[in-house]
Amino acid sequence: MRIAVDILIGISLFFAFAGTVGLLRMPDTFSRLQSSTNIATLGLLGVIIGGIVYSIGQYADYTMAVKLAILGVFYIITNPISGHSLTKAAYRHGIRPKDGFVCDKYGEDMENDD
């Protein structure tokens, strides 16, 4: 039991670490945001699932498990909205990567509208 919890938390720590390294190494705003979703998804879900397994296995406390599951669900629902609005705001503000995009359909369509 304890080993399963440790493995889950270890996995999520690994992904949080990878996300942080990506955050520091990526060259531009958009790619940094991409890398940070790594932390947000498996990085957090691993800890939450570990917590659920621990609270059921160790204390047989189902109330705590249900609360953790709800925490995960609401996190999953609300988190993407921040990523979405951050990229949109950054783009509208005129931030572009140094090497440019491979293809930029959004900008092309925005110019056509004006």
Binding site: F14, A18, G19, G22, R25, D28, Q34, V102, C103, D104
Partner: peptide, 18 residues
């Protein structure tokens, strides 16, 4: 994504908006 970020050397990214 994790291996893309952790791989040593030049980053293998190819960003764009589709």
């Amino acid at each position: 994504m994790a291996f893309r970020a952790l791989k040593p050397g030049k980053l293998k990214i190819n960003p764009g908006i589709v």
